[in-house]
Simulated scan of single mutants.
Amino acid sequence: MTLLVTGANGQLGQELVRMGDERIHIVGYGRDQLDITDLAQCREALADVRPNAVIHTAAYTAVDQAEAEPDAAYRVNALGTRNMAIAAQEQNTKLCYISTDYVFDGKGSTPYNEYDNTNPQSVYGKSKRAGEALLQSLCNRYFIVRTSWVYGKYGNNFVKTMLKLALDRDTITVVHDQIGSPTYTYDLAAFLIELVQSEAYGIYHASNTGTCSWYEFAQAIFEERGISIRTEPCTTEQFPRPAPRPAYSVMDHSAIRTNGFNDLRHWREGLRAFLQELEV
């Protein structure tokens, strides 16, 4: 089986590319090799690689910057996804689009089901939701996988930031009123590769299981690493950002259960595995 990964230089893209083996051949295209905002390039990439499936991780992910650059966010997340969907449909290729918990408003108090109404509040969330809608209208063989709070070996993320800050601080203040599920790229990538080998098309919520606040996540990082540091909780209002964050972005994994896939492990186990990987 051959898989084409877009956004191959990103956090999740790099994780996916290194998972190739003799059974699954993975071809990764970064932005320098494939500009997804160019339909001709998307068609060319699929014609060259002839993949069985595309895992489309390329995205505009600068959440706060998107508020000032809506056109740039929509160009990549909406039109870029439209282009990939057109090219995939023409080749009858499966397309898996990585989406986000930001498609919800975060005002709920029970986990969001795959079929709950979306109501994105930020430009980033709206542009990712637009990508979902375009994919659904243009492509027959699609998977939409919404994930949250992603971290891993490649790129910058919350876990690496906390470890770095702990080197020269004795107190760290972290938001405690945003609740979600941290997701380790290794676990997410393994699920995606399993998913695209199936015909179980549709929308999926995939994150490590269990929930926590960013404050509790930070505490867990320091506990697992044996770092002694004072961690102080604060509210979202005390830490204002240009783009609104969902206060509650826990997602129910109903599609994983009903389609017979194994769920991702608990977020604390994923964190432990990642911290061990960092030390290697």
Results as ranks from 00 to 15, higher is better:
residue 155 G to V: 00
residue 148 S to C: 08
residue 129 R to T: 11
residue 123 V to N: 06
residue 128 K to M: 01
residue 108 G to T: 05
residue 151 Y to M: 03
residue 151 Y to S: 10
residue 153 K to P: 11
residue 150 V to R: 11
residue 143 F to D: 03
residue 126 K to M: 13
residue 117 N to A: 15
residue 124 Y to K: 10
residue 113 N to Q: 13
residue 120 P to F: 03
residue 112 Y to G: 00
residue 126 K to L: 13
residue 142 Y to G: 06
residue 121 Q to P: 07
residue 111 P to Y: 09
residue 128 K to S: 03
residue 107 K to I: 00
residue 122 S to K: 12
residue 139 C to T: 00
residue 124 Y to S: 13
residue 136 Q to I: 00
residue 118 T to S: 09
residue 134 L to N: 07
residue 149 W to H: 09
residue 107 K to Q: 13
residue 123 V to C: 09
residue 107 K to A: 13
residue 108 G to C: 11
residue 111 P to D: 12
residue 123 V to K: 09
residue 140 N to V: 03
residue 143 F to E: 01
residue 114 E to P: 09
residue 121 Q to F: 04
residue 143 F to A: 01
residue 120 P to W: 00
residue 130 A to P: 13
residue 131 G to R: 01
residue 117 N to I: 10
residue 138 L to Y: 04
residue 131 G to I: 02
residue 123 V to Q: 11
residue 110 T to W: 11
residue 132 E to H: 09
residue 155 G to H: 04
residue 145 V to P: 13
residue 114 E to T: 13
residue 150 V to I: 07
residue 132 E to A: 01
residue 135 L to R: 02
residue 116 D to W: 00
residue 149 W to P: 15
residue 127 S to F: 04
residue 110 T to M: 05
residue 131 G to W: 02
residue 137 S to K: 08
residue 129 R to E: 06
residue 149 W to I: 05
residue 124 Y to I: 11
residue 120 P to M: 11
residue 134 L to E: 06
residue 147 T to H: 10
residue 128 K to H: 04
residue 110 T to G: 06
residue 146 R to G: 06
residue 145 V to Y: 06
residue 129 R to G: 05
residue 110 T to P: 10
residue 133 A to M: 14
residue 146 R to I: 00
residue 107 K to M: 06
residue 122 S to N: 14
residue 151 Y to N: 09
residue 154 Y to C: 14
residue 145 V to C: 02
residue 146 R to A: 02
residue 116 D to K: 04
residue 138 L to W: 06
residue 155 G to I: 01
residue 112 Y to S: 01
residue 144 I to W: 07
residue 147 T to K: 11
residue 125 G to D: 13
residue 139 C to G: 01
residue 137 S to W: 03
residue 144 I to F: 08
residue 154 Y to F: 15
residue 151 Y to A: 07
residue 144 I to M: 10
residue 150 V to G: 13
residue 119 N to T: 04
